[in-house]
């Protein structure tokens, strides 16, 4: 078979490309294949390998069965559907995290290990998060105090919990 690009040399490189779900196949000679590869790398950051492409690749590979079940799933807020997300590796809006929570959970775990946020909280609107964390820490302390039979301390903590809960 002759190279589909130059039609001069013997084609000995078979290139399969899947771009936005479209599969194209090409038979090229070594020379043309190399030239095309170089073209691809020439642009600064354009179309070259990056972590997001890798991510999309992992998703489409790993989530075969999940992808089937997720077909047709779309975000009510921005219209992003699962297929587009899996291909592009980008979510459309904040609500997508809820819409695709089942698909995201294993992915986030894979990327970040334990995907529970630590660190900075927004100064506004995170009061509930702060309170929740505070409460869970207090409840832990209460349990420990009871187990160690420090009942006076336990009573103090219980009052503290009440105050935090009543705080709204």
């Amino acid at each position: 078979m002759l190279c589909e690009e130059c039609r001069k040399h013997q084609a000995n490189v078979h290139v399969t490309q899947v771009l936005n779900g479209e599969r194209t196949e090409k038979n090229l000679c070594e020379h043309c294949a190399q030239a095309m590869g170089e073209l691809d790398l020439a642009g600064l950051g354009s179309g070259s390998f990056n972590i997001n492409n890798l991510l999309a690749g992992i998703m489409s590979m790993e989530q075969g069965s999940l992808a089937l079940k997720s077909r047709g799933l779309a975000c009510a807020t921005c219209g992003m559907d699962y297929r587009r997300f899996a291909e592009g590796g980008r979510l459309g809006c904040a609500d997508c995290y809820q819409t695709f929570s089942r698909q995201l959970a294993p992915l986030l775990k894979r990327i970040h290990g334990t995907p529970t946020h630590q660190g900075k909280l927004p100064s506004r609107g995170a009061l509930s998060v702060n309170r929740k964390r505070h409460l869970s820490r207090l409840k832990g302390e209460l349990k420990a105090a009871v187990e160690q039979e420090h009942f006076e301390r336990a009573a103090e903590i219980r009052d503290q919990i009440k105050r935090v809960e009543q705080g709204g």
Binding site: G89, R90, L91, Y97, H117, G119, R124
Partner: peptide, 25 residues
């Protein structure tokens, strides 16, 4: 900026970003 703007934030995941590789901090 945060004193004037509301940022997208999730109780468990933290700051929400377009790509899940940036979520959290």
């Amino acid at each position: 900026l945060e004193a004037e703007l509301d940022f997208a934030f999730h109780e468990d995941y933290g700051y929400l970003t377009a790509c899940p590789t940036n979520v959290g901090t």
